[in-house]
Structure formats: C-alpha cells, structure tokens
Amino acid sequence: MTDQPVTFTGGPIFDGQKLRTNMAARFAGGALQALVPEAEVGADETVVDLSGDILSPGYVDLQVNGGGGVMFNDDPSARTLARIASAHRALGTTSILPTLITDTAEKTRAAIDAAIEAVKAGVPGVAGLHLEGPHLSEARKGAHDAKLIRPMDEEDLAFILMAAQTLPALMVTVAPENVTTPQIQAMAEAGVIVSLGHTDASFDTCMACVKAGARCATHLFNAMSQLGSREPGLVGAVLSNGLMSAGLIADAVHVHPETIRAAWTAKQGPGQIFLVSDAMAVAGTGLSEFRLEGRLIRRENGRLTLQDGTLAGADLDLTQAVRVLTEKVGVPMPEALAAATSVPAALISKDKNAPLQKLSQTIRIASDLSGARAVAEG
C-alpha cells in the first residue's frame, strides 16, 4: 500500500472483535485513520472496492516452523527469518513467532541470536521467538528427535532469561518431565510465555505448573496427555483452568472438527483457544516434500508426515484454519477471526492495557475464504 490516503469500502470490516458492515476504513501513511459509515465517503477519496471481501487485522501466528521452502532449524539466521516471514505475509500473516523445533543447545542459542538480530533490524513480521523444546517428554515427542530431548539446566535457563529481556515476545514449550516448577516460575517472572506441550503429565502436575506461571498449551490435543474419565490430563487442565490459553491446529487432520467443537464449548475463560498453523517449509510453495534434520517429510492430501506416518507439522495457513472453524465446527466468523488475530496478539503483548490489534497491518480475506493477502501495513 502507498502512503497516499485510501479508503476501503464494499465489504465487512473486522476490528479485532466485531464484523462491521456498511462501514469504510480510511488509511493514510499505511495506518488506519478512521472507520466511518460508507455514506460518508467523499467523491474525492481514493476508494478500493472490497467486492464483498473482508478487511481484517493481519493474522498473528505463534507457531511457524518454516515457509518459503526453508526451515528455521536448517539455518537459524535473520536471513532465514526474513524469507519465512515473507512467505507467510503472502498468506495473510503479518506477525509470526518463528519456531525452533527441538535441537542442540548450540542451535537453540543461534536461533535466539537470529531472532534478536531480526527484531533489531526490523524484519517485517518477526514478533519474537518460540522455542518448542528441547525440554519435552520422549513419550510425547511426536516428530521431535528423541536424541535431542533433554532436561533444562541452569545454562539453558540463563539463555532463555537473557532472550526474554531482549525480545518483544518469547514463548517456550516445555514438558513437566524435563523442567522444574522453579524454572517455570523464573521464566514466567521474566516475561516468558511458558507453554506446556509434548507431555504425558497428569492433571495435578499440569495445574502445579500453571500455579508456577505456565499460561499456555501447545497444539491442543496433539502430543499431550488426554482427557480421560479418571485422569483429565493436560487437555483437562487447559479446558478447566481459565488462566490457560491454547494453540490449536484447525486443519481437520490434527483434531477432528467435533473434538474442536466440544473443546470450544467447554473452554473456561478468560484464557482462550487461538489458531496456529504449525507451518513447515512447504508453506507458500508448491513443494511436495522437504527434509527436517535429514529426515524426509512428505506433503500429500493436506498432511505432512514422516516416513512412518507420524504427523510432522501442518500443511495449513490461517485462512484455511478460519474456514475449518466456521464451516466444519460452526464457530461464528468474528470468533474465528479473533482466534487468528486479536487473541494471539493479546497473549504476546507485554502491555496488556494497550490496544492490541489495530487495522494498521491489514489483510484482505476472500469472501469465500479461499485466501488472504496483506493490503495495508503501518
């Protein structure tokens, strides 16, 4: 979008909470100036007709492993982050937490350095960092390399606390099997978004982690202890504890739509379920396969799998996830859009009193939910 004033009209406008109809959005210098009734648009204004498409804040994706043909793990550098972020911006995601999957201590530190460099350089779309491991449970490792999973030590903790002081947002996925509650408390007090995942921990153990400061769960239902009749597990802790939020891979592959429906109804607030893509290198490309640390991952029929059939990330963008929520689960459109925009934005915002999602990084979503693209960025 140019710096010239422009007005968008002719379609619903999502403001982060509600869909506004019969309204127009005026921009100048790439930033929203006002929402006004369409009847007030002047004849001298430069107008873009949305033709029924939705104008929305850009998507915020807190779990992005790769895109544009590359994986963050393969080359944890600011250059890689720029390429990944660019690929996702073309899909409507204007803010990401690039995500490092379980790797060596050296690779983890390189990822932290890369994220810090990218943020300082103002790489568009890089909002911080998500470390998914290596302090997970082997019993729920999923596609993570078991050889690299290990307990958190004091040096690991020190690097995380340093990163939290520098990055605008830092999420760390851990399993109670390989971290202690004092470590969780130290991270939480430093501003880290501690997310429980890849764990077989009991309900009581998970609740103790929440008491210590954990506030999130990674890809709800996947790679975690399940909701049972006598043991509620991490799923039960997420749904019953209002302090917890949870990412969800809504591709109708990782989680059945009816399971999503039940969770959506059961979730206690104020914590909420939000959408993540768990995207891999193929995002934004036509690639049919790629490698993760030497392991072949195939893309077929909307799935990404290792050779043994284990799901390895998702072949998903957030417009597809919104479509699954609205068309297969029955979630109202404003709630579905909030789950991809304002809800994750609020989770990573350090200023809880500030407006969290303005129409300054804006996307146009096709009326049939076939895709989205960035159209206005401040």
Rank of each mutant, 00 (worst) to 15 (best):
93 T>N: 00
140 R>A: 02
123 V>R: 04
127 A>K: 01
97 L>T: 02
172 V>K: 00
148 L>G: 03
114 A>H: 09
128 G>A: 12
78 A>M: 04
130 H>R: 13
93 T>F: 05
164 A>W: 07
165 Q>M: 15
150 R>A: 03
173 T>V: 08
89 R>S: 11
159 F>P: 00
148 L>A: 04
159 F>G: 02
78 A>T: 13
96 I>K: 06
95 S>K: 14
155 E>L: 11
134 P>L: 01
101 I>C: 01
158 A>N: 15
142 G>I: 07
96 I>L: 10
98 P>K: 05
153 D>C: 13
175 A>G: 11
89 R>H: 15
166 T>W: 09
135 H>G: 11
150 R>H: 11
95 S>T: 12
55 L>S: 06
152 M>R: 04
86 S>M: 13
130 H>D: 10
154 E>D: 13
176 P>D: 06
83 R>S: 14
90 A>R: 09
95 S>Q: 11
97 L>W: 04
165 Q>G: 12
116 I>L: 09
124 P>R: 05
158 A>K: 13
143 A>Y: 04
126 V>H: 03
112 I>E: 03
122 G>W: 14
147 K>D: 10
94 T>R: 12
177 E>H: 14
160 I>P: 00
76 P>F: 08
141 K>I: 10
89 R>K: 14
108 T>N: 07
113 D>Y: 08
106 E>L: 07
167 L>T: 08
107 K>R: 15
79 R>G: 15
68 G>N: 15
59 Y>M: 14
88 H>G: 04
170 L>W: 03
115 A>L: 12
58 G>H: 04
142 G>W: 01
85 A>H: 09
90 A>K: 15
131 L>P: 00
96 I>D: 01
161 L>P: 00
134 P>T: 08
92 G>F: 07
165 Q>I: 08
95 S>H: 13
86 S>I: 11
81 L>S: 12
113 D>R: 11
143 A>R: 01
65 N>W: 00
144 H>R: 06
150 R>V: 06
56 S>W: 04
104 T>H: 13
136 L>H: 08
91 L>N: 04
134 P>K: 04
117 E>P: 10
148 L>P: 05
129 L>F: 06
54 I>H: 04
97 L>Q: 10
150 R>Q: 07
63 Q>V: 05
147 K>G: 09
120 K>R: 15
56 S>V: 13
176 P>A: 02
77 S>T: 15
64 V>T: 08
54 I>K: 00
111 A>H: 03
87 A>C: 13
95 S>G: 08
158 A>I: 10
